[in-house]
Nucleic acid binder design. Sequence first.
RNA 1: GCGGGUGUAGCUCAGUUGGUUAGAGCGCCAGUUUGUGGCACUGGAGGUCGCCGGUUCGAAACCGGUCACUCGCCCCA
Length: 411
Amino acid sequence: MRILQPARGTSDLLPSDKARHNQVVSTAQTISARCGFQDMATPIFEFTDVFRRPLGDTSDVVSKETYSFEDRGGTELTLRPENTAAVMRAVISNGLTQTLPQKYFYAGPMFRYERPQKGRMRQFHQIGVELIGPSSPLADAEVITCGADILDELGVLSKCTLHLNSLGDTESRQAYRAALISYLTQYQDSLSEDSQRRLSQNPLRILDSKDETDRQIIADAPILSDYLNEASRAHYDVLTNALSKAGIDFVADPRLVRGLDYYCHTAFEFITDALGAQGTVLGGGRYDGLAEMLGGPALPAVGFAAGIERLSLLIDEPAAASADLMVISLDKELEAEAFALASQLRRAGYSVDVPFSGNLGKKLKRADKLGAPRVILLGTDEWHNNQLQVKSLATGDTALVARDDLLSFLS
RNA sequence: GCGGGUGUAGCUCAGUUGGUUAGAGCGCCAGUUUGUGGCACUGGAGGUCGCCGGUUCGAAACCGGUCACUCGCCCCA
């Protein structure tokens, strides 16, 4: 074990990386606030059952990817692998089920023990929204539209395609699941090893298998939409109509499913081909069954999560913050005065740099690099006359300014 | 968890069939210029050649293991 490198699947966010993260988070927060989603946060770890119960033992996320541990008091805890279950737990814990709907935005780190790849970290970061209370398909439409607007604001919507599907309600999904299993069982021996395992654990997952033979078998498999009952069909129709009216493009993708057990009705993913195998940039769906799985009341809800690292890979780097001013003393005797002046200017709201070393040429070069448009120079003669030089780096012009007039000159 | 690829300076990369003190460009620091920037020139710092072991008179190079990244599977945001 070498401590001079970050643990596998984690990474440092140096300023240029952090700037991208901040850009994603602040944009998502602003856009989702426009839809009424309020920023909130839940703890980084929860009782293990918060994730284990709703996510199900068939989910890899819980069965083999969690960071779970026993604390010093013997309590079983888990670093959150996703945030939806935790937000729902918070809604129930705080008695917020009495005041619905609740609309939340969150951003923060999640943890999954996976094999790292580009866009797939062990500590990764997500932004997301949860709309808890309404069962109306218009709530689904609002969540999807909010996601699309965030991607658009970040400039990545054009690189993504919205895939949409309905998993139906419990009745529809169970009918389909039975039909699918019955169909696939005929070809059991021809299925890939992964899909044979999925047949018993999570048969819907076989629909998006990448194995060539699997795909041929799936081509003639029953279609989920044929098994939607009337209510599920109506839910989907209202949603698609609302999206079309709101100008949200999508493709119906009957093979789109979700890995987590609590999803029903709407499933959607914004997918890009710019990130290799990690193409899903923002995904979510309806999870009416989650609250009950946690031991709460029946509580319809819909939401999405998006990977900040993946979005960061797609956006242009935000412009770095530049300094407004640099204060330079031309005489070593005046260094403390320069520092005092810089402090005063900072308190007045300016972003000010004070160089610590170098001759005048180096200092001006540094001012250039920091993007400071103006430099204040303290020369001995001027200083004794209560004057300062204010030099514009763009024009090279230098103005002589009385010390007392500096702030008004600058503004 | 499975299969493939890659690890040399902060970054991008050279490094001959294994041979003396491992190089370049960019970046960084300093000087030319202790009172006026972007250019240029000169100099400097910075490397356990990912790590450990093996082969060899001799390893950055060959072999084994390991760690990390990366591509695909898997999973998913």
